[in-house]
């Protein structure tokens, strides 16, 4: 009995929250002030909610802008946690990167960050400047989560907070994660991020009901990573990075349909695309079986990346950028 009451209360709370959100969105502007320590959050009044920008202050006083354009999509309740764990039946999502087209503009990263309200240092899809050996050609390599079919990260999670769905997507349930960071250690591709401190996010975002399918609002002490935008897929739309790529580098689709589509809406046969371009998966020898393919950067359509510039780009956080080259051959 008591349990039921509790559950109802919870539901009510959620509904209230949703109602509140809907109302505030309908009214249009939200002037919200969040005072968590030094972090202040506000959004200006606009004619149309879809074009509101929210300015958020990072811990050290720098400003970054979160595009609130996507907000309207979350006034509807997300799918239940159970459905989010199961995924979409009969689908197997894949992503293909045509490296010959990538010019390293990082528009995919920007689109992703706007979609997920991430802090600027969390690049769920990161564009690397690669050069495998002294004598080989440099190229740009955008890297999302590979949504491995044999995912090392999922294996090691002690509580099943990270899980693999039937549509191939690997997600994290931030409401279950205990923050042990085994998955950060286990992912060989440095794909995962951790919310070390209280997340910096607009109050309007913090009020959205949580779903593993979009990974926000964030919670301190939990991990996060690229999620292939399942909440967009459910609306029949492609992930933010795919549509955000101006070079049409990224293809996304359903392997079962044998088709992938890029930002220009060009849909091609997946198997043929992979075959014609001798596609490969990054570090196949690790046996993680990524769901992400790369087409080799042959006949590039962009100037080659300047390897000298690594670490010299200005970073948003104002700190001295890192110039550690890790495993890179210079």
């Amino acid at each position: 009995m008591q349990e039921d009451n509790k559950k109802d209360n919870k539901k009510d709370n959620k509904n209230n929250r949703r109602d509140f959100l809907r109302k505030s969105l309908i009214t249009g502007g939200v002037l919200a002030a969040g005072a968590i320590g030094l972090e202040k959050v506000f959004s200006k009044e606009g004619e149309k909610t879809s074009t509101d920008d929210t300015t958020v202050f990072t811990r050290d006083g720098k400003v970054f802008r979160a595009d609130m354009e996507c907000l309207h999509e979350y006034k509807a309740p997300p799918v239940t946690n159970e459905e989010a764990r199961k995924g979409i039946a009969g689908k197997k999502f894949v992503m293909v990167f045509d490296l010959a087209k990538c010019d390293g503009c990082k528009k995919c990263t920007e689109a992703c960050q706007a979609m997920h309200f991430t802090e600027p240092d969390r690049e769920w899809i990161k564009v690397y400047k690669m050069k495998d050996a002294e004598t080989t050609a440099p190229y740009y390599m955008p890297k999302p989560c590979f949504h491995c079919d044999n995912p090392p990260c999922t294996k090691v999670c002690p509580v099943g907070a990270t899980f693999k769905r039937q549509d191939g997507i690997v997600l994290i349930d931030d409401e279950r994660c205990i923050g042990c960071r085994s998955c950060l250690a286990a992912c060989p591709y440095s794909t995962r991020f951790f919310n070390w401190s209280d997340p910096i996010q607009p109050v309007a975002v913090a009020n959205i009901p949580y779903s593993p399918e979009h990974g926000f609002p964030r919670q301190r002490g939990t991990s996060e990573k690229c999620d292939f935008c399942p909440h967009m897929i459910r609306e029949g739309k492609m992930p933010a990075c795919v549509t955000g790529c101006p070079m049409q580098t990224i293809y996304f689709g359903d392997q079962n349909e044998d088709a992938v589509t890029n930002s220009a809406g060009v849909t091609v046969k997946l198997s043929q695309l992979l075959e014609d371009n001798s596609a490969y998966r990054y570090m196949e020898e690790l046996g993680t079986e990524p769901r992400v393919y790369y087409l080799p950067p042959k006949n590039r359509k962009y100037p080659k990346p300047d390897m000298e510039s690594i670490g010299k780009e200005k970073k948003d956080d104002g700190k001295k950028p890192n110039s550690d080259m890790g495993n890179m051959v210079m």
Partner: peptide, 11 residues
């Protein structure tokens, strides 16, 4: 002539 796929139409 195309077939409809999830995110677009494929020749």
């Amino acid at each position: 002539f195309y077939v409809q796929r999830l995110f677009g139409i494929m020749p």
